[in-house]
């Protein structure tokens, strides 16, 4: 997937020894290799994952916005719990899914 986000350590220009080895995780069933211990939202952006979710109100696509745990736009579901991807560190074996979304056709449920 095409991404506008570039990992400076990639390509060996500034080999980042303190950043972890790559571990397998999945996003919506898609297999990914992300750096263990790295910020999950940042790793997903570099891997080209977008959107992270669709809103519960209209089903609009969303991705990370504030990266500091304030906006809740980067919500993902891991182990059945909806969490902020920007506040989580990557661990091997994570099965990441989009949280439940609302009507994608712009309709309402009332």
């Amino acid at each position: 997937m095409k991404t506008a986000f570039r990992d400076l350590a990639a390509g060996g220009a500034s080999a980042d020894a303190s950043e972890g080895a790559r571990v397998p995780v999945s996003f919506e069933g898609r297999a990914l290799l992300l750096r263990a211990g790295a910020n999950l939202a940042a790793e997903l952006l570099v891997a080209g994952v977008m959107p992270f979710r669709h809103t519960p109100v209209s089903g609009a696509p969303r991705g990370p916005f504030c990266m500091m745990g304030a906006c809740y736009d980067c919500l993902v579901r891991i182990g059945g719990v909806t969490q902020q991807a920007c506040m989580i560190e990557v661990a091997g074996g994570m099965e990441i899914a989009m949280p439940p979304a609302g009507p994608a056709d712009g309709g309402t449920d009332d």
Partner: peptide
């Protein structure tokens, strides 16, 4: 600020 946090904490730059 988010772009700067990506750069600081993750070494990721928004292109």
């Amino acid at each position: 600020g988010a772009a700067q946090i990506l750069l600081k904490a993750s070494g990721v730059v928004a292109g």
